[in-house]
Computed example of a mutant assay.
Amino acid sequence: MRPFARLAAAAAVSTLALTGCGSASEPSPPTGVDQLVVPTPTLDPADFVAAIDNPWLPLAVGNEWRYADPAGGRTVTVTVLDEPREIQGVTGTAVRTTTTDVGSAADEQTIDWYAQDDDGNVWLLGEGGSWEAGVDGAESGLAMPAEPRVGDGWRKEYAEGVAEDQVLVIDREGSASVPYDDLTDLLETEDTSALDPGVVERRLYARGIGLVRAQTVAGGDELLELVAFSED
């Protein structure tokens, strides 16, 4: 797991045909999200919409977020691109993350693909150069549910040995003072990965903005805060 990379118990699905069958991975602990199987081995294009307007993860083309390490060692820029990609028949929205470290000879760039279903849940479909849903057993995970609740937990991605991030909602009334603004009523999550045992990251999301802070609270000391947010 790494900051700003690309932010269920199996239940019978009603209108959503996101279940598939024979998933190679275990269902997401600890509580899951109602009526969803996470991660899902197959996606039904009929369940997805064109826009990603989830208030906690608004990924409209042209939106851009700039983050910085208060110590001055790193900046991260996240941009929603007009470069769609079809994954398992679903049109994914491309999100580019550019990381600049002081003293580094070159920036690091990654592209992730997201899509929103017709209930408002946002799915992570893949990360360029790392994994893609439907390829080599990789499965789409949940980036953000439509209505996250304290205690909800899910897999954000699943590619065995490559990408195994998990998310747990721990608060809906968080607050933070970041360079962008003083913010309240924040969604707070705890992000972990089976591939990085002992590493725990806390993330804070503001409604209508998205991610505003990511801090490693165990197994490291990384901190990134929102400096600027612009909408196209």
Rank of each mutant, 00 (worst) to 15 (best):
L18W: 11
G134W: 10
D196I: 09
D47Q: 14
V61K: 04
Y205M: 15
E222A: 08
A9R: 06
E201I: 15
D136W: 05
D196A: 13
Y205K: 01
A51P: 15
G72D: 00
T77R: 14
A8E: 07
W154L: 13
A115Y: 14
N121S: 09
A51S: 14
R155L: 14
D47W: 13
L183M: 09
T40E: 08
G126D: 13
V122W: 04
L125Q: 11
Q109D: 12
Y67T: 00
V95N: 09
V150D: 00
G62H: 08
D152R: 02
L186K: 01
D107R: 12
A8S: 11
A105N: 14
A51D: 15
V227I: 10
V37P: 03
S175A: 06
T40D: 07
Y67L: 03
D152F: 03
F229P: 00
Q88L: 10
D101S: 06
L226C: 01
D232P: 09
S140M: 07
D69L: 04
E164C: 08
S193F: 15
I52Q: 01
S28I: 00
L183N: 01
N63A: 04
Y205A: 08
G126V: 11
L204G: 12
E86H: 06
A146R: 13
E164Q: 12
L204Q: 15
T97D: 13
P3K: 06
I52A: 01
L183R: 01
P29G: 07
V61Q: 15
D112V: 09
M144A: 11
S230V: 02
G73T: 03
D47E: 15
D181V: 01
L36P: 03
R202E: 15
M144C: 09
T184D: 06
E26P: 02
P30H: 05
V78Y: 01
V61I: 15
S177H: 06
L16P: 03
P145Y: 07
L223F: 05
A17E: 11
G174A: 11
P58K: 01
W56N: 03
L57A: 12
L142E: 11
E201D: 15
V178T: 04
D69H: 02
E160L: 13
G128H: 10
T31N: 06
A206R: 03
